[in-house]
Design a protein around this nucleic acid. Structure first.
Lengths: 193, 193
DNA sequence: GTCTATACTTTGATAGAC
DNA sequence: GTCTATCAAAGTATAGAC
């Protein structure tokens, strides 16, 4: 049985699409309502504010990422395998949910963050901790060199997250090929020789 | 003799500072004029529009990057040395001009780009070409593995550019240490064994 | 749930005096 | 070069009928 998309889900999906295309701030509630084929005021039946829209999108996005990350981090594989699996899962997730991740990663940076972003930033920190933990394990078991987990983690996440800036599903390279190459580059980069 | 900062330079500097902190779109001309201590209308003596402000900031930024990139790419060093030098120069440039680069890199993504961004996108492409060229040279001379220049280039630039998202001058790590570690990781990642 | 109508605020930008 | 005064447009959000 196929689940029909409710208005609320449609609202989040279309909003993310527009936020990605024009930016959160440059997208008006009128833009969103037009794209949905309803009046602007009707949107407020589903959410309390435009910021709520962004918050719901970001929470949903980070939940997907953390869930996938924990699955890998808590598996019984050795660090090298875990890191490779994490890279593949991360890249696939971003490429298959470009609107969600582009918006979340793009807006996540703002210092204006005030209180509203606390939740999202906390989730991002949780994911970073997972990544650093795997690198630390690899160092402890002697397969990775003695690199700073923090700096190596930033290097890896930057390398991976940047993909939302250029990836297009219609491009030539397959997601799996890109992910395998990058896992290979990073692993060889920190592996003990 | 110390060059005094003119109002125009001050305008660009303060604008970049605010754009970085709040985002281009969320920063109003009133915010900028307040920070400058002049009236909003006075800003228009120096520029034609808010978009012009962003364009001038971005052109200035990309010029710095390209100049540094060409200096490295056109040097007589072997590919391995060039890549290491490029990483160091790139990281240092971003960290020493955080406002300029954060704003430019952040806004550069927008699809809304229309005509105005053509110039900036062209400059970014020129820099990417430099990076890919060095990687290709390394492959040709057998020191780098047979990786896609495009994919490896994106990996490297993502890794480097991401630094604007977390770097703070007050942090513990020195710019040189970070750059050397990353050059090391990436070079070992693509080096022929 | 979706509509009409509208309140209220903020925005980028201009005209013209000094 | 900087000011005062002002505009027209666009923004988010609410009230209340259906």
């Amino acid at each position: 049985m196929v689940q029909k998309e409710g208005t609320k889900e449609q609202l989040l999906r279309v909003s993310a699409e527009l936020f990605r295309k024009k930016g959160y701030r440059a997208t008006s509630m009128r833009d969103i309502s037009r794209a949905l084929g309803i009046k602007t005021s009707s949107i407020y039946y589903y959410i309390n504010s435009k910021e709520d829209l962004l918050r719901e999108i970001s929470v949903k996005t980070m939940n997907m990422l953390i869930k996938a990350g924990e699955k890998v981090a808590f598996s019984p594989s050795p660090p090298e395998q875990k890191l490779k699996q994490l890279v593949i899962s991360h890249v696939r997730l971003l490429c298959e949910n470009l609107d969600l991740f582009t918006v979340t990663l793009h807006e996540l940076t703002r210092t204006n963050a005030s209180s509203f972003w606390k939740e999202i930033v906390g989730m991002r920190d949780r994911y970073e901790t997972l990544v650093r933990g795997i690198i630390r394990n690899g160092k402890e078991s002697g397969v990775f060199r003695n690199v700073s987990e923090k700096m190596a983690g930033f290097a890896l996440l930057g390398m991976l997250n940047w993909i939302v800036r250029w990836y297009s599903p219609s491009g030539g390279k397959s997601i799996e090929d890109i992910a395998r190459l990058w896992a290979d580059i990073f692993l060889n980069g920190i592996k003990e020789r």
